[in-house]
């Protein structure tokens, strides 16, 4: 177990390094929200999900990045899994590049295009309903941002997941507390956030979303929840892993400078 956790932590560091280099090279992008959800993606793709980069198995588990601006984290994770060569990461946001600024379903491993906020949970619901109809054991995981939960559609979808008792679906909210214009509680108050989900009929798990052990434990718990969907509210730090980015709104949608990249990579070892 300890060895496995060590491996996952190392993988998270590798992916964080990719994120810094990709966004720096692109000259734009969203490092803050990519770094905050990296540990969640690592646990999902390298520990929890049944998936095979070599074949699109019908019974694979599905992941949807509803907070599509964290595309660098998703791409780096997919590349580390082997969905496409790591060398492709440097094409992010480039002219004619392989990797679009936001997730695009033309990219291997990306189940659905995203980027316009508030829509992923609805899509995840549809996939979960289809799986149920087909008696397909695959599970659906969808990652939302907390600022994204300002969107009304999230709550339309949250009602549906509970109404149809979608226990083959797990939502994770990257609760980093910041959105582009500032703190979520100042821009549009979300609290009492977990009570909102509970009142919508969800099983709620709250964790430190940058702690690999806690993330694993939370996903283990989701397997035993029957008859209702589960949401993991993952308290994270925006910019996690890079001291001068942590908790900083400024790095929501800003690329690091040359010097900032060097400092960031120094820290990520």
């Amino acid at each position: 177990m300890l060895k496995m956790i060590r491996k996952l932590k190392d993988k998270a560091t590798v992916i964080r390094r990719h994120i810094i280099k990709m966004v720096h090279s692109a000259g734009s992008g969203h490092p803050g929200g990519s770094l905050s959800c990296t540990d969640i993606l690592v646990v999902l793709y390298f520990h929890v999900m049944k998936h095979d980069p070599q074949k699109k198995d019908r019974e694979r588990d599905r992941f949807i990045l509803s907070k599509g601006h964290a595309a660098p984290a998703l791409y780096a994770t997919l590349a580390e899994c082997g969905y496409f060569p790591i060398s492709k990461l440097e094409t992010l946001r480039k002219n004619g590049g392989y990797l679009q600024g936001h997730p695009d379903s033309s990219i291997p491993g990306v189940e659905v295009s995203s980027g316009s906020l508030g829509q992923g949970l609805s899509v995840a619901n549809g996939i979960a309903l289809a799986a149920r109809l087909d008696e397909n054991p695959s599970r659906v995981f969808v990652l939302l941002g907390d600022g994204e939960c300002d969107e009304g559609q999230v709550w339309e979808a949250a009602m549906l997941s509970a109404h149809y008792k979608l226990d083959n679906l797990v939502a994770i909210v990257d609760r980093n507390g910041l959105q582009i214009d500032g703190q979520t509680e100042q821009i549009m108050c979300l609290e009492p956030f977990s009570k909102k989900w509970e009142s919508f009929g969800w099983h709620v798990i709250e964790i430190d979303g940058n702690n690999i052990e806690e993330i694993i434990k939370a996903f283990n718990e989701t397997e035993n929840i029957i008859g209702k969907p589960t949401v993991i509210i993952a308290h994270t730090f925006k910019g996690k892993g890079v001291s001068f980015m942590e908790g900083k709104c400024a790095f929501h949608g800003k690329a690091p400078t040359d010097e900032e990249m060097i400092r960031a990579l120094e820290e990520l070892k």
């Binding site: 019908r58 189940e111 659905v112 508030g118 829509q119 992923g120 949970l121 609805s122 899509v123 995840a124 619901n125 549809g126 996939i127 979960a128 309903l129 289809a130 799986a131 109809l133 087909d134 009304g152 559609q153 339309e156 979808a157 009602m159 549906l160 149809y164």
Partner: peptide
């Protein structure tokens, strides 16, 4: 699937079902 008075979710859910085959 009746999604209630929720057109945005109507489309998203339909999209998911289509992705699911």
């Amino acid at each position: 699937f009746n999604v209630g008075c929720a057109e945005q979710n109507l489309i998203g859910t339909a999209a998911g079902l289509a992705i699911g085959g």
